[in-house]
C-alpha cells in the first residue's frame, strides 16, 4: 500500500477545503475504501477522516425524514422514526453486508461504495472503471453478478448497495455540500450509468461531499418490502433485489414505487412499471404485468442471463409481499 497522510476534519468547512486537493479522499466507516486501498485499486495521497463531524442525526422534518451522512447503517436500520415512516429503508439496510459491517458503514459511505466486480478489484485484469481504456474483463468473462440494464460497451458492473435501492425507490434526495454551499439532487440522479466514463460512479463533483439524505413523507409504510435474492442468507451481494412500495386503497393501487438492485450500474428505478400499477387491483396478475414492463430493454450476458427470469420473478414476489399476498 502506498504511504498516505491522514487528517481528521473538525468542521465540514475544513473537510470541503481538504478534499479540493486532488488525491484526497474522505474516509468515514472505511468498510470499502480500506479494501480498495489494500488491493491497490485506489491509492489516495491523503485521507480526511470526517467521523467527528455532526452528521449523524436522524430527524423528522415538516416534509420528511432527514438522515445525516454519518449515521451508521445499523443505527438507521433500527431507528424508530425510520421503522415507523420508512420501514423499506430499514429492510434494505438489514439485507446488506453483515451486522459487523453495518456497525461501521455510514449512509454517505454506502452511497459511495464501489462495484464488487472482481475484474475491478484485481489489478492484473483489464477494467475500464479502474484503469480507463484497458477494456472490460467481465464483458466476455465471469459476469454472473453483472448488469442487465443500462450497460455500455465499456462496463457492465453493478452498484452493490441495498440501501441505495431503498432510497431510490423512496424518492430520496441527496444533500451535497461543496465550496459554493449545499445542493440537492434526486437520489435516482446521484449515481450514473457507465456510458463512456465507467470510472465515474456518481455525479458528485470534485470537492463535494455528501452531508445527508432526505426522504419525503409518503403513505407506503404499510405496504412495502425489500426482497433480496442471493447465494447465501447473509453477507452476499444481490443476484437481484427489489424494493417495492405500494399505497393501496380498497384493493386498488393508488401509488407505487419500485427499484431494483444487482441489475445496473445504479439503483434501477422502475418508473414505467410503477405507472402501470397505478389504478390496477393489487393482485399477482397486476404485479406480473408490471414486472414484464420493468424488463423492457434488459440484456443478458453469458453467465447472467438467468437474471432475465429472476428479475421479473423477484419483482412479482416483492410486490406480493408488499401487498400482503405472500
Amino acid at each position: 500500500m502506498k504511504q498516505f497522510q491522514y487528517t481528521r476534519a473538525l468542521t465540514q468547512q475544513s473537510a470541503i477545503e481538504a478534499i479540493a486537493k486532488p488525491g484526497t479522499k474522505i474516509i468515514a466507516g472505511g468498510t470499502n475504501l480500506i479494501d480498495l486501498m489494500k488491493r491497490g485499486v485506489t491509492a489516495p495521497d491523503k485521507l480526511v477522516d470526517i467521523n467527528h463531524l455532526p452528521l449523524k442525526n436522524i430527524t423528522a422534518t415538516k416534509t420528511g425524514l432527514h438522515i445525516g451522512a454519518l449515521a451508521l447503517n445499523s443505527v438507521v436500520s433500527e431507528n424508530s422514526l425510520v421503522l415507523q415512516k420508512q420501514p423499506l429503508l430499514s429492510m434494505a439496510l438489514k439485507a446488506g453486508a453483515s451486522p459487523q459491517l453495518r456497525n461501521m458503514a455510514t449512509v454517505g459511505g454506502n452511497m459511495m461504495q464501489r462495484t464488487r466486480c472482481s475484474y475491478f478489484y484485481d489489478t492484473t485484469m483489464p477494467c475500464n472503471k479502474r484503469a480507463p481504456g484497458t477494456g472490460c474483463g467481465a464483458m466476455e468473462g465471469i459476469n454472473r453478478m453483472h448488469a442487465i440494464f443500462g450497460t455500455s460497451d465499456q462496463c457492465i458492473a453493478v452498484n452493490p448497495s441495498d440501501m441505495s435501492v431503498g432510497l431510490a425507490a423512496l424518492d430520496a434526495v441527496a444533500i451535497i455540500a461543496g465550496k459554493k454551499g449545499e445542493r440537492r439532487i434526486p437520489f435516482t440522479e446521484f449515481h450514473r450509468l457507465p456510458g463512456d466514463h465507467p470510472e465515474l460512479d456518481n455525479h458528485l463533483a470534485a470537492g463535494e461531499m455528501i452531508v445527508g439524505v432526505e426522504i419525503p413523507d409518503n403513505n407506503f409504510a404499510k405496504n412495502s418490502y425489500y426482497l433480496k435474492v442471493r447465494d447465501r442468507q447473509s453477507y452476499a451481494f444481490a443476484l437481484v433485489s427489489v424494493a417495492a412500495a405500494l399505497e393501496i386503497s380498497n384493493g386498488t393501487i393508488k401509488n407505487a414505487r419500485l427499484a431494483m438492485g444487482g441489475v445496473a450500474h445504479k439503483p434501477w428505478r422502475l418508473f414505467d412499471a410503477e405507472k402501470a400499477l397505478i389504478g390496477k387491483p393489487a393482485t399477482e396478475d397486476s404485479f406480473k404485468q408490471a414486472a414484464q414492463i420493468a424488463m423492457q430493454g434488459a440484456k443478458g450476458y453469458q453467465y447472467n442471463s438467468f437474471k432475465l427470469k429472476l428479475a421479473p420473478a423477484t419483482i412479482t414476489e416483492a410486490l406480493k409481499h408488499a401487498a400482503g399476498l405472500a
Partner: peptide, 22 residues
C-alpha cells in the same frame, strides 16, 4: 476465468461458505 487462468472469487465475499443464517 479460463481466458486468464486465474481465480476470480478468491476472497470470502465472493467464495461463499455458509453463514449462520443458512
Amino acid at each position: 476465468d479460463h481466458r486468464y487462468g486465474n481465480i476470480v472469487n478468491n476472497n470470502f465475499a465472493d467464495y461463499h461458505v455458509p453463514v449462520n443464517a443458512d
